[in-house]
C-alpha cells in the first residue's frame, strides 16, 4: 500500500490534486465565506471557459504540437456568439463550423508540410484576431439567451462550475484515455513512427486532434460569452498562455503524448484560484501574473523532483 502511494506514477498523477488542495485550504482559511454555494460559484465561474480552452490546448499538445492561437480563436468565437449567432443564427452556426474546418486543415498542413506548429498557429492567431476586430470593432454585442441560461444554471447542492468542470474532465478522460482510438491518438504523440508502422494514418490522428481543439475552443468561446453577456475582440487573449500552463500543471508534457485531462482541469482550477488567492492576500493585480508564474515553477520543480527520484530508485 505504502509502495503504491509513494510510487512515481501515483505521485505524478496526484500532484495536480495536491497543488489544488494547497491553494484551496488557505483561501478557505482566509475567507471562510467562500466555502458556500454562492462563494464557490463566484470563485470558479470563469474556470469553465478556461478549462475548455485548456482541453483544446491539450489535444494539440498530445500530438507534440503547440497552439498559440487558441486565445484569439476563443475571442473570435465569443465575438461570433455575441453578434451573428444572436442576430442570424444560421450564419453564426455556419461560421463556427467553418472555424472548426479551418482548424482541421491547419492540422493537415502542419503534418503534410512538416511545419512547426508554433509558427503556423502564431500566424493564425493574428488571422483570428483580425477577423474578430472586423466583426466587432468595439466591445459590445449580446450573447444569445440560451447560452446565458445554460451558463447561469442553478444546480442543486453543488455549484454549476464544479459540475461542469467535472463533466468536462470525465468526458475527455473517457474519450482520450479510455477509448480504443484514444490510445492510438496518444500513441501518435508518443511514437508516431510506431503508429504509422502499425498501419494507422498519422495524418488522420493529427487532423482529429486539431478538429477536437477547434470544437473545444468553440465551446470555450461560447461559454465565455454566456458569462460575460457581451464580447470584445481581445476578451480571451490571455487564454493562450493560461491553457498551456493548465495542461502542464495538470501533469502534461510538451512532447511525448503524456497528458491527463482530469489533471488539466485541476490545473486550470488551481490557476484560476491562484488569482483569487493573491487578491485575498492583498497582492496588487500587477504582481499577480508573476505570482502565478511562481506557482507554476514550484509545481514543475516538484514534478522534476518526483521524476528524478523515480529514475534513481
Amino acid at each position: 500500500m505504502l509502495a503504491t502511494l509513494t510510487s512515481r506514477r501515483f505521485l505524478r498523477s496526484a500532484l495536480p490534486a495536491i497543488s489544488l488542495v494547497m491553494i484551496l485550504l488557505p483561501i478557505f482559511y482566509m475567507q471562510p465565506r467562500t466555502m458556500s454555494y454562492f462563494g464557490l460559484n463566484l470563485l470558479l465561474n470563469l474556470a469553465i471557459p478556461i478549462a475548455l480552452a485548456t482541453m483544446a490546448q491539450m489535444f494539440v499538445l498530445t500530438v507534440n504540437d503547440l497552439d498559440l492561437s487558441i486565445g484569439s480563436y476563443v475571442s473570435l468565437v465569443a465575438c461570433i456568439g455575441a453578434t451573428w449567432l444572436q442576430q442570424t443564427p444560421l450564419l453564426g452556426v455556419a461560421a463556427l463550423l467553418a472555424c472548426i474546418v479551418v482548424y482541421g486543415l491547419l492540422g493537415a498542413l502542419v503534418h503534410v508540410r512538416n511545419l512547426p506548429s508554433i509558427v503556423v498557429t502564431l500566424g493564425m492567431s493574428f488571422v483570428w484576431l483580425g477577423l474578430a476586430v472586423l466583426l466587432l470593432p468595439t466591445p459590445g454585442g449580446q450573447a444569445p439567451g440560451w447560452i446565458r441560461t445554460v451558463m447561469t444554471l442553478k444546480t442543486p447542492m453543488v455549484p454549476f462550475p464544479i459540475l461542469a468542470a467535472l463533466l468536462i474532465g470525465v468526458l475527455v478522460h473517457f474519450g482520450l484515455m479510455r477509448s480504443s482510438y484514444g490510445a492510438v491518438l496518444r500513441g501518435a504523440g508518443g511514437n508516431p513512427r510506431a503508429v504509422a508502422r502499425a498501419g494507422w494514418s498519422v495524418l488522420r490522428t493529427k487532423v482529429t486532434m486539431y478538429v477536437m481543439a477547434g470544437i473545444f475552443g468553440m465551446l470555450s468561446g461560447l461559454s465565455l460569452v454566456g458569462l460575460t453577456t457581451s464580447a470584445d475582440a481581445n476578451i480571451a487573449l490571455r487564454y493562450t498562455l493560461l491553457s498551456i500552463a493548465g495542461v502542464i500543471l495538470g501533469g502534461g508534457e510538451f512532447v511525448g503524448g503524456r497528458v491527463s485531462p482530469i489533471g488539466a482541469v485541476l490545473g486550470t482550477v488551481t490557476l484560476v484560484l491562484a488569482g483569487s488567492f493573491l487578491s485575498f492576500m492583498r497582492i496588487s493585480p500587477d504582481w499577480q501574473i508573476g505570482a502565478q508564474g511562481a506557482i507554476l515553477i514550484v509545481v514543475l520543480a516538484l514534478r522534476a523532483l518526483i521524476n528524478r527520484r523515480g529514475s534513481t530508485a
Binding site: 480504443s180 500513441g187 504523440g189 511514437n191 513512427r193 510506431a194
Partner: peptide, 29 residues
C-alpha cells in the same frame, strides 16, 4: 524492429491495441 516501436507514453495493453485494429469497443482494455 531493431529500434523499438512501442509508444513509451502508453501502457503495455494500449500498445497491444495499436497493432490490432479490431481491438475496440466495450471492454477492449
Amino acid at each position: 524492429f531493431q529500434e523499438l516501436s512501442l509508444c513509451p507514453n502508453l501502457t503495455v495493453a494500449e500498445n497491444a491495441r495499436i497493432i490490432h485494429p479490431k481491438l475496440s469497443g466495450w471492454g477492449w482494455r
